[in-house]
């Protein structure tokens, strides 16, 4: 139990296969950096599969998101296109939502159901992500076949926000930067729901908040990106705080994962520069599906198989992305050398 490969977690009181933890942290960085979305969806199930009690897995995940969002905030030095008014109004909903999500987790823990329920909801959640990725891929393939001109029509997508803006429950608010006017309850409601899910699953929630901002609230995409980043950071910090107060966080694990993620994120972000085409998206979708399968394996007590599957899948996709990065980077450096040699 106290062998070299296992690290003792002082609070949860479990011994964890630490290379697995480093690998998950690192992969989240690489994959998140590459695809530009959190990647936290693999952390909660990953930690749980490695042996963390579910509530600890969620708390640890949300705290590591807080740290990671600090990294990206540093990188952009400021958030860029944030509608701060919208952001602050949404904070109300987000924080309330996270608290409720965390309370639900604690409640489920008390009645002894937290493991299975969170796992099954994760299965549904990951299925949804996979569906999104694959339909996105199908759309892109179709578009490139039809040519840009024909594809442009589809850009508008959902316009549900037009309907939602007609709901005029006071107070009405105007958000100058995003250029929208709607009832204040709309962003609060939307952020509340995403907050609940974020607090419940231990994710940043950007995956849901971003489309919600665009489709339900009607913010322009670049504003949605910035405002979402702002929201993720605050919600991560709040989530970390509240989960720590509830005693469901493993600080050692947070640091290990965060360090891995910081290195990984660089590689992932640089790799986007050299990647071409949509093929990698399919790999991503498959990774999500494999993660889903390993959660189901865990649910049916095939712990070793679950751990082996999730770890091998994320390392495979990591190696693939690293390959892209190193090939691209060495080509660029060679070119530069050649250019300066002439």
């Amino acid at each position: 139990m106290d062998s070299f490969w296992y690290m003792y977690m002082p609070i949860a009181g479990v011994s964890i296969f630490w290379p697995g933890m480093v690998l998950i942290g690192y992969s989240v960085g690489v994959i998140g950096g590459f695809f530009g979305m959190g990647g936290a969806w693999m952390v909660t199930p990953g930690l749980n599969i490695l042996g963390f009690p579910m509530a600890f897995a969620i708390g640890t995940d949300i705290a590591h998101i807080a740290g990671k969002s600090m990294i990206s905030t540093i990188r952009h030095s400021k958030f860029g296109n944030v509608d701060y008014k919208l952001g602050i109004v949404m904070l109300v909903g987000t924080m309330a939502g996270i608290e409720i999500g965390a309370q639900i987790v604690m409640y489920l823990e008390r009645i002894g159901m937290v493991g299975p329920i969170v796992r099954w909801i994760y299965v549904g959640f990951l299925f949804l992500i996979a569906l999104m990725v694959f339909s996105d891929y199908a759309k892109a393939v179709k578009k490139s076949k039809m040519g840009a001109a024909a594809g442009e029509k589809g850009v508008e997508g959902f316009t549900w926000y037009k309907t939602l803006h007609k709901i005029k429950i006071p107070p009405m608010m105007h958000f100058k930067v995003a250029g929208i006017t709607c009832s204040a309850w709309l962003p609060i409601f939307v952020s509340f729901l995403t907050g609940v899910l974020a607090g419940f699953l231990g994710i940043g929630g950007g995956l849901l908040r971003m489309p919600a901002l665009i489709y339900f609230i009607g913010a322009p995409t670049h504003i949605a990106v910035g405002t979402d980043l702002f929201e993720v950071m605050i919600s991560g910090l709040y989530g970390a705080f509240t989960y720590t107060l509830k005693g469901r966080i493993e600080l050692v694990a947070v640091f290990v994962m965060l360090s891995g993620a910081a290195i990984g994120a660089q590689i992932g972000t640089v790799a986007t520069k050299y990647s071409k085409g949509y093929g990698i998206r399919v790999a991503f979708g498959i990774a999500v599906l494999c993660c889903m399968i390993s959660i189901i394996l865990k649910q049916f007590k095939y712990d070793t198989a679950a751990a082996a599957l999730i770890l091998s899948v994320i390392s495979a996709i990591c190696i693939y992305i690293m390959g892209i990065m190193f090939k691209g980077a060495s080509a660029e450096l060679r070119e530069k050398k050649l250019a300066s040699g002439k």
Partner: peptide, 9 residues
């Protein structure tokens, strides 16, 4: 967590 995050960044 915040300090480690920004430091590593």
């Amino acid at each position: 967590t915040a300090a480690l995050g920004s430091g590593l960044g």
